[in-house]
């Protein structure tokens, strides 16, 4: 058994992130922006994978949690003034956004996770839309015209570092005796309950954890684009994230990361055909599903046999 391995990977990833942020001023700004987009997408997809993939609870409201984290941390940044220069400020404000998203995730999750399948999907979609509508009507965050002038604090290092932490957290959780309950709930709720798994609590923990990381991703996104618009967090955004999880093969961490990278880069590659870009993108989704319905990167149904 290789218990220490996971932490070593975490340290390596963080070291790489620090290294990357040291060199990042030398990169082309456009590529830098795309790579940060990729990092944010990885956080979103991996965290949704905990809910949709590992735990099997179909959520369509991930963009809503992203919005909460984004708006909250951006609002803090616009309110605090001087101290945003401090090194510790940014991770703290991101975590504040994450915690608020997690708290809302708890409020949403406790009542709605009793529902199953399509019903859970529509309720989470509904909550996501409610969050968007509230943002659209709240003057403090710019209402419908959006929140402008957010300081540019997201760097390659922060985006990549948080992506590493997210992947580590979710992979280690799922590969522990505690976290195996997520997969048990996914496989068979009744059998899980009969063997002592508190299924409601397990689902809520997955939901809240996923919401926390979505909130962080939202904060990174806000301080990357420097502008937030409520329409950017509608249910189509949630669906984008769901597509990453499904293409990656539901519950396969590696596959989901690869899908997040691929789906973020694809529109960039298609930039030259801007007129047909989205048509090609949607055609690719259909074709991929028809040809590889178990996910792009699944080759054998071999999963998690060792810890």
């Amino acid at each position: 058994m290789n218990f220490r391995g996971a932490k070593r990977w975490l340290l390596l990833g963080i070291a790489l992130a620090i290294l990357a942020s040291y060199f990042s001023p030398q990169f082309n700004r456009y590529y830098l922006g795309v790579v940060i987009d990729v990092g944010i997408a990885i956080i979103l997809a991996t965290s949704l994978n905990l809910i949709n993939g590992h735990t099997g609870q179909f959520s369509l409201g991930h963009a809503g949690f992203m919005a909460i984290g984004g708006y909250f941390s951006a609002w803090i940044s616009l309110s605090v003034g001087e101290s945003i220069q401090a090194f510790w400020y940014f991770p703290l404000s991101l975590c504040a956004g994450g915690v608020l998203a997690a708290a809302v995730g708890w409020l949403v999750g406790v009542p709605s996770l009793r529902l199953r399948g399509d019903y859970l999907a529509i309720v989470t979609l509904g909550f996501g839309e409610i969050i968007r509508v509230i943002a659209q009507n709240t003057e403090a965050v710019g209402a419908a015209s959006g929140l402008k002038g957010i300081p540019k604090l997201t760097t390659l290092g922060w985006a990549f570092g948080f992506a590493v932490i997210t992947v580590y957290a979710i992979a280690t959780l799922v590969n522990s005796t505690y976290g195996r309950a997520f997969i048990a709930v996914h496989d068979d709720e009744i059998a899980a309950a009969s063997h002592g798994v508190n299924t409601t609590r397990t689902k809520v923990v997955a939901f809240v954890t996923g919401a926390f990381f979505a909130g962080i991703a939202g904060g990174l996104y806000a301080h990357h684009k420097q502008f937030l618009s409520p329409t950017g967090f509608d249910w189509v955004k949630s669906i984008d994230i769901v597509v990453m999880v499904i293409l990656g093969g539901m519950g396969r961490t590696g596959g989901v990361i690869a899908a997040a990278i691929l789906l973020t880069l694809m529109p960039e590659f298609l930039r030259e055909f801007s007129e047909y870009r989205m048509i090609i993108y949607s055609l690719l989704i259909i074709l991929l599903m028809l040809l590889r319905p178990e996910g792009l990167f699944s080759f054998k149904t071999q999963r998690r046999s060792k810890s």
């Binding site: 597509v243 499904i246 293409l247 989205m278 048509i279 949607s282 989704i285 319905p293 178990e294």
Partner: peptide, 18 residues
């Protein structure tokens, strides 16, 4: 799996819209 069909449906929807 049902989810594969769901994503395909979303793909079809996006395809028609775009």
């Amino acid at each position: 799996p049902k989810l594969a069909v769901l994503i395909t449906a979303i793909g079809v929807s996006l395809l028609i819209e775009y």
